[in-house]
Simulated assay, not measured.
Amino acid sequence: MKISKKSINVILAIIFFIFALVQLNDPDAIIWFLIYAIVSFICIYSNFKIVPKKILVAVIILLIGYALFHLSLFIDYLKTEHKEELFGEMVYQKPYLEGSREFLGLLLAALGVFYQLKRPKEVK
């Protein structure tokens, strides 16, 4: 069973929009809501129009660049014994937890945009 790119884009758009909504209770909600909402928009928009490759590459670079700011916190997390903490509540004494979540979220967002580079010659 082959799933069409348009169907995958709808699924990705829904997932990233849910990610955006979940961010609304975050202290820095605006930036994270916008990041995930933009990725969601790109996924849906790609079903109707071709997003220029330069824009997709620029967004990917920005997302990965921002992720690199969180890389050291992710490395700190990888050195911990209790990996399950990543899925628990935020502990202010452990900033690597939030940094790791942000790092992984940015990588997922970059992958969502990267998927758009694999597009048909024209949008039907």
Rank of each mutant, 00 (worst) to 15 (best):
A37G: 06
I11Q: 06
G88P: 10
V113A: 03
A67I: 09
Y36Q: 11
V113W: 01
K49G: 00
P27K: 12
H82E: 15
M90S: 14
K118C: 09
M1L: 12
S4W: 01
L62D: 11
N9W: 02
A109T: 08
I50T: 08
G105S: 10
T80S: 10
L111K: 00
W32R: 02
F74V: 08
L68G: 00
L104Y: 04
D28E: 14
A67E: 05
G88N: 13
P120I: 07
F19W: 10
I44F: 14
I11V: 14
A58L: 15
S100G: 10
K6M: 03
L111G: 11
F114Q: 07
V59C: 08
K124D: 04
K121R: 07
I35V: 15
I18H: 05
F103L: 01
L71H: 06
I75F: 10
S72T: 10
I44K: 06
F41G: 11
E122D: 13
Y45G: 08
N25K: 15
V22A: 10
F69H: 11
G105V: 02
V51P: 07
L107E: 02
K83S: 14
I18G: 06
K94N: 03
N25I: 15
V57E: 13
P95C: 07
D76Q: 09
D28F: 11
F33V: 10
F87E: 08
L97E: 00
A110F: 05
E122A: 15
V57N: 11
D26G: 11
I60H: 03
A37E: 07
E122P: 04
P95F: 03
L34I: 15
L104C: 10
S46F: 00
V39Y: 09
K124Y: 08
L24S: 14
I55Q: 09
R101N: 07
D28G: 10
I38E: 04
G99A: 01
F69A: 12
E102F: 02
S40Y: 05
F17D: 02
L62C: 15
E89A: 15
C43T: 00
Y77M: 06
Y115R: 09
D76K: 02
I75K: 03
I8V: 15
V51M: 14
F114V: 04
F19K: 04
K6E: 02
I75M: 07
E102V: 06
I30E: 12
P120T: 05
F41S: 08
S40H: 09
H70W: 09
K121D: 11
Y77V: 05
L62W: 11
L56D: 06
K2C: 01
P27S: 11
R119K: 13
V39K: 05
I31K: 14
V113D: 01
L12I: 06
F74K: 00
I61Q: 05
